[in-house]
C-alpha cells in the first residue's frame, strides 16, 4: 500500500504543479466576489471542474437563470462524456469506488488514468483510486489556501501551468511510441485544428471530438489490429 501511495504521488505530481497558480487564483477571486474559503472549498470539492468554477463566478454575480446555469455547465464540460468510454469495464471492476472515479474523471485524471505504468508490487485498483484522490485533494486544498492566504508564493509562478500542457505532450508521445497504429493521434490532432479554424478556439472541442469518434469508427478496419478484431468476436 505504501508503495502504491508513493507511485500515486509521483504519478500525480505534474498535476500538483500545474494546479498551484490556477487553484490559488481561484480562491482569491472567490474571496473578492464575497465568497469565503468555505464556499471555495465546497465548489472545488463538489464541482471539481476548473473552467466551470471560473464561469460560476459570473453566475454568482446574479441575473442568470438556473436553466442557463445548467445549459452552460453542460456545454462547457461536454468533452467529459467521452472520457468514461475507455474505463467502463475497468471502473466497474472496482465496486463502489467506481462512483468516486467517475466523479473525479477530470481532464487531469483522464490523462493520468490513460498513462498508468505500474511497477512491480503495485495494487492496480488502489493506484487508480489514490491518484484520483490526490488530485482532488490538491485542487481543494490549494483553492482553500488561495482564499485564506492569497497568492503569496515566494517566487514568480507565471507560466508554471505549462506543466499540464507538458504532461499531455509526454503522454501523447508515450502512446504514439507504444501503439501499433498512430492514426488516432492524427485524427484527433487534425480534426481539432480544423475545428478551431471553423468554430473558433472557444467552441472547438465538442465538434472536434464528435468528428474524431466518427472518423475512428469509419476507419476502424485500418486502425484495429486484425488479430484483436477476430479475438473480440
Amino acid at each position: 500500500m505504501k508503495k502504491t501511495l508513493r507511485y500515486a504521488i509521483k504519478h500525480s505530481s505534474p498535476i500538483f504543479i500545474s494546479f498551484i497558480p490556477v487553484a490559488l487564483a481561484y480562491g482569491v477571486l472567490m474571496q473578492n466576489a464575497g465568497y469565503n474559503f468555505i464556499w471555495t472549498g465546497a465548489c472545488s470539492l463538489f464541482v471539481l471542474a476548473g473552467s466551470l468554477q471560473y464561469l460560476m463566478m459570473t453566475f454568482f454575480a446574479g441575473g442568470v437563470s438556473l436553466i442557463t446555469v445548467a445549459v452552460m455547465a453542460l456545454l462547457l464540460n461536454s468533452r467529459h462524456i467521452f472520457y468514461g468510454l475507455s474505463f467502463i469495464e475497468k471502473f466497474r471492476s472496482f465496486g463502489p469506488w467506481k462512483y468516486f472515479l467517475i466523479y473525479s474523471l477530470t481532464d487531469e485524471n483522464y490523462s493520468l488514468h490513460c498513462s498508468h505504468d505500474f511497477p512491480e508490487g503495485i495494487n492496480e485498483k488502489w493506484a487508480y483510486i489514490l491518484t484520483a484522490a490526490l488530485t482532488v485533494a490538491y485542487w481543494v486544498i490549494l483553492s482553500i489556501l488561495g482564499a485564506l492566504i492569497g497568492t503569496v508564493i515566494p517566487f514568480d509562478t507565471t507560466g508554471i501551468d505549462f506543466a499540464l500542457t507538458a504532461l499531455f505532450i509526454v503522454i501523447l508521445i508515450e502512446q504514439i511510441k507504444t501503439a501499433d497504429n498512430r492514426l488516432p493521434a492524427w485524427i484527433g490532432g487534425i480534426s481539432s485544428i480544423v475545428c478551431i479554424l471553423i468554430f473558433g478556439a472557444a467552441n472547438f472541442i465538442l465538434p472536434a471530438l464528435v468528428i474524431t469518434v466518427a472518423l475512428l469508427s469509419i476507419l476502424r478496419s485500418r486502425i484495429e489490429p486484425k488479430t484483436e478484431r477476430e479475438g473480440m468476436k
Partner: peptide, 27 residues
C-alpha cells in the same frame, strides 16, 4: 459492451490526448 465501444475505448485515448494538447495551445 458493444464491440465498437470496446474498440473506441482503446482508440480514443491517443486521439483525445492529441485534442488536449491542441486545447492547451488553442490561444
Amino acid at each position: 459492451l458493444p464491440d465498437v465501444i470496446k474498440y473506441l475505448g482503446k482508440a480514443l485515448p491517443m486521439a483525445i490526448m492529441a485534442t488536449l494538447v491542441v486545447y492547451c495551445l488553442k490561444d
